[in-house]
Design a protein around this nucleic acid. Sequence first.
DNA 1: AGACTCATGTAACCAGTTACATGATTGC
DNA 2: GCAATCATGTAACTGGTTACATGAGTCT
Lengths: 200, 200
Amino acid sequence: MSITTLGYALLTLLVRKPLSGYDLARAMKNPIGFFWQARHSQIYPELARLEELGLVTAETIAQRDRPDKKLYTITLDGQAVLAQWITEPAKPASERNELLLKTYSLWLADPEKAIKLFQDQKELHQQQLAQYEQILTEYPQATPLSPDSPDFGSYATLLRGLSYERGYITWCHWILTQLESYVDDKRSQNEPPHEHKYSD
Amino acid sequence: MSITTLGYALLTLLVRKPLSGYDLARAMKNPIGFFWQARHSQIYPELARLEELGLVTAETIAQRDRPDKKLYTITLDGQAVLAQWITEPAKPASERNELLLKTYSLWLADPEKAIKLFQDQKELHQQQLAQYEQILTEYPQATPLSPDSPDFGSYATLLRGLSYERGYITWCHWILTQLESYVDDKRSQNEPPHEHKYSD
DNA sequence: AGACTCATGTAACCAGTTACATGATTGC
DNA sequence: GCAATCATGTAACTGGTTACATGAGTCT
């Protein structure tokens, strides 16, 4: 019985502060969701496994007006295991992007519907970007974060998210200019095609 | 029995030209691998399913000096199913990036080892970028590709790959500057910390 | 009365990875 | 002789998703 990546993800959260399974499920949605996701149905069994391995301890907390909860705390063993894992070589992310798959066959699609597809996708990423930019404002300007503070990790991953979303949006935008000029040119065949240069 | 995303990925390749299972496995590594991956053990059963559904036909080809192969050809039904799928809303890619997970807990790591981690990662992405840039040179400059040509899809996905790798490398580089200046400052405590500005 | 949040679990299923299995030909 | 490429499959397992299950308290 060895430790899974999800296990490390949970330790990553618990090393900052003790949390319940429910809290962890929420945290796996919100700050961690951009780079690792998991549902509660996967989290609860994984926590039991971490406890068995002695990497976390659980304490049942009775609450008034709310159901009891189990608060999980990382052990010294857990911290050591996590710290060791961080600097081990990371497996390359196996990308699986449905939109790119669709883009590869875009020539088969009705251009009007393709435009709709990319407009929707662009908007989704613009919303995500707006959320990241909101989070960014919560960080102090001009005060550089030190790599030995927990906030450095949150900030660094946020920067990656911002860059990713900006690149994605730019790319969607470029596709849209291509599709739109194609549709325009089809409508009025006598004019020459416009030029749209792509740069990230 | 419905069609999986891998099924669409295979149709995406077969709509361009008929291929064997072996060819498809290779194509899933090379041009498609950046956004969708699959091993041959998943591909062969999936092809059988596509055949059952009448979306492809198989023809056994005898070869001299080599084992027989089964050449798969997309049917009209297959083309219709694929074309329809393309413009349906795409599910957002569920990101799973181990390096970002590690970055989130970077404060726990030994800085020297962390530098090694990001140098290795940066190099991997630089190699990937170099490969994409090589492929880019094979496209004609200044002649804009029309969205109704199959090459448009290949080119568009390539652009996304280039942008992604460039952003990733820039980000790795920024992390490295942070880690290195942190290590430097620890060595000579009297000098003030350097400034490194991040921009994508 | 109905929906939402807090709270924790299990079961069935599906997608994807690793390993097992076979066998001919080509190049070093 | 040994590894690599071509060629096609199956089996076992693991990671992850969807659905099932329960129940108290709050808000509209």
